[in-house]
Each structure stands twice: as C-alpha cells, then as structure tokens.
Write a protein that binds this DNA or RNA. Structure first.
Length: 115
DNA sequence: GTATTGACTTCAT
DNA sequence: AATGAAGCCAATA
C-alpha cells in the first residue's frame, strides 16, 4: 500500500461524510482528512476515484463556493444539476456557502472515520 | 534527475 | 467584483 492511495482513501471517506444538502471546499476536505494544505490533492484524487466507489464529488467546491469547472462546461452543468437534486441551490455556477457549507461536528466525524 | 501541470487558496492589485 | 501572482504539492512527462 502506498502512502498516496491511503491519502485518497481518507479523502473519499471524508467526502462520504458530507450530508445531503451540504457542501464543502477542497481545502476543508483536505484538512478533515488529515492532509492540511493538500487542497489540490483532493482535486487530484477525485479524478482517481474508482468507478465502483460512489463518492459525492459534486459536493466539493472551491473555497469561495464556486464550482471548480469553467462556467458552462459540461462538468459544471452536471455538477449544478446534481447539487440541485440534492437540495443545494446553485446560482451562476456558485453556491451560497453561508447557507450550504458543511459544518461537521465531532459525532459525525467519529462515526464516519471509524471505518 | 528537472520541468510542467492542475477538479486549489490566499493575498494583492 | 475581477484578475493576477505566488505558494502549494503530488502526478506526469
């Protein structure tokens, strides 16, 4: 097992903890996964997600609430649709973080990370 | 081994 | 609000 694949695992597990209707930023996920400063690694890892693993990549946004893809791109539109299906309002390629950013409490984190 | 790239973030214009 | 530079670090070439 390489160190990096373990990091990916932690990232994916962390993303799995984001409840429906909430979102998180790349940096936030990196921090919660025990990888402070590795925001870009989170983005990387999402390209490496195996197909058989369901990771809610669409709940991960930039630190300012914007979708990471170019506005109008196919991926951005897809992500927008998925977010809205899950109860997150998306306006002009952005989410209002004040309302929708995930604020994890200790209970949720411990429950998720024990696996 | 060096160089470039990017699903990022922050600070400064 | 918009844009750009710098910092960042693992993956690629």
């Amino acid at each position: 097992m390489s160190q990096t694949s373990k990091s990916y695992e932690k990232i994916w597990v962390t993303i799995d903890q984001i409840p429906d209707g909430k979102v998180a930023s790349y940096g936030q996920i990196a921090d919660l996964a025990g990888l402070p400063g590795r925001a870009r690694l989170v983005g990387k890892s999402l390209r490496f997600v195996p197909p058989d693993r369901n990771v809610a990549w669409y709940k991960v946004l930039r630190s300012n609430g914007q979708i990471a893809f170019t506005k109008g791109s196919e991926q951005a539109l897809l992500q927008t649709g998925l977010l809205q299906e899950h109860g997150v309002m998306v306006l002009n390629n952005r989410v209002k973080l004040a309302e929708f950013q995930w604020q994890p409490d200790l209970g949720e984190l411990l429950f998720g990370l024990q696996y």
